[in-house]
Write a protein that binds this DNA or RNA. Structure first.
Length: 129
RNA sequence: CGAGCAGGCGGAACAGCAGCGUGUACAGCGCCGAAAGGCCGUGCAUGAGGAAAGUCCGGGCUUCACAGGGCAAGGAUAGCUGCUAACGGCAGCCGGAGGCGACUCUAGGGAAAGUGCAACAGAAAGAAACCGCCGUCUUACUAGGCGGCAAGGAUGGAACGGCGAGGUAAGAGCUCACCAGCGUAUAGGAGACUAUGCGGCUAUGUAAACCCUAUCCGAAGCAACACCGCAACGAGGCACCAAUCCGCUUGCCCGGCGGGCCUCACCUAGGUGGCUUGAGCCUUUUGGCGACAAAAGGCCUAGAAAGAUUGCUGUUUGAAACAGAACUCGGCUUACACGCCUGGUCGCUGA
RNA sequence: CGGGGUGUAGCGCAGUUUGGUAGCGUGCUUGGUUCGGGACCAAGAGGCCGCGGGUUCAAGUCCCGCCACUCCGA
């Protein structure tokens, strides 16, 4: 599945200002609706993460975690921004993938799934589109 | 065997699954588009460094300026000879400093062109005289005046060459030997410079203080620059105040909405080129102490644009260092786990 | 890619131009004053001047190389 990338600074700024977010020491996820009918994803690593090698690794690890998830259930029409933090380049993609999945659920981007909903944490509220 | 010195090389490897950039071939003729073409799929090939880093120097390239020469200003460099496209880089050598040595370090022109500064201390920081030494005069008899001197003391980072002998009232390059410094001649050397002789007999340090001398330097940088180019703005031409005309709304009608048209120039968003064959890399031979040069043969080796060799697992041997091309090349500087190679030196021991 | 600034006591800043004693405010400590506290008065402590070399008799200051933070332009 091909993912459209976010590449304009104003789109990132819109996500930071108007979007919902979920935070974790390894990852921060922002999401905001767009009107394009498809998802766009942007991955960033600021200078706080480290030098160029560390920033590149942080982006790659996050991208690998994204690819390991089964995202057919993802709702359409969102801009999603994934921000790396200082410890991200030290982690493995297998430890980031559950964090990312939990963030997506918290932000209400997963389609309604009866089995998971019955088992999983009911404290995470479902947000209607 | 131990200690120490100098130089160089490499910079984890392999396998499985999944995935990325570029190039190329093929296919569905699937999707988008007026077209050119693009997107999706598969196969093959290929895909970061010794520092890619810092951006400290010097080139290529591009645009602008000057198109001849000189001067000024500003900046950089500073022993000599060479290497190089060039350099503030490199090689060899000279002088100085350090080390028993292998070897290391060295911004190393000019202080009699001029100016400034040298705190405190000290008499004095450059044409010196506080204590002092000597001679002489006065004298209240332990002080003072005049003259000579710069050896000794004291201060300092530094005190008008060092040291010894002669000499003298006391002294002093006043005289002499040696040494250091300056000038000059000869010899050697490509030169820096070295060696020897002779001469006069002496003017501290600081130029990474101002400065002087010699040499070099036009400015900006690939977000440069070139080309294409919705909209908007500008110029010209043609229409003329018409809605019975034109465009859109699925082909036609009704209805609705909108409306001067064409050309040129400039050019925004954006796109394309610049973009990788180059003072290129590898091997061998020759010349040179060396930096390097020449010849022959062979090779093509990243070119992205949110930005590409990665994620997970396993084995070796373990949890691998510093770290990611962004137009490009030569250097410099800085960071770096681990593994290895070569050549000298010193000490001890054995043959 | 190009250009600039800052780093000094716990904190905020002078001093660097023209090299010789590191200082100001605030905070801290001790003492005084007050029934006690604040304010006030007096005394005092606290600095490898971001790091490493060099020039110099002597470096916070001059020169070179690094590090960190920060600003500006294309």
């Amino acid at each position: 599945m091909k993912v459209v990338k976010l590449n304009q600074n104003r789109d990132f700024q819109r996500a930071y200002r108007k979007g919902k977010f979920a935070a974790h020491p390894l990852l921060v996820t922002y999401a905001v609706k767009n009107r394009m009918g498809e998802n766009r994803i942007g991955i960033t690593a600021s200078k706080k993460v480290g030098n160029a090698v560390k920033r590149n690794r942080a982006r790659r690890v996050i991208a690998a975690a994204w690819n390991t998830l089964q995202l057919q259930k993802l709702k359409k029409g969102y801009d999603i921004v994934l921000v790396a933090r200082a410890k991200t380049p030290l982690a493995k993609s297998t430890t980031i993938a559950p964090v990312l999945e939990k963030h997506l659920q918290k932000l209400g981007l997963m389609e309604h799934d009866q089995k998971r909903d019955a088992v999983d944490d009911p404290a995470v509220p479902e947000i209607s589109v």
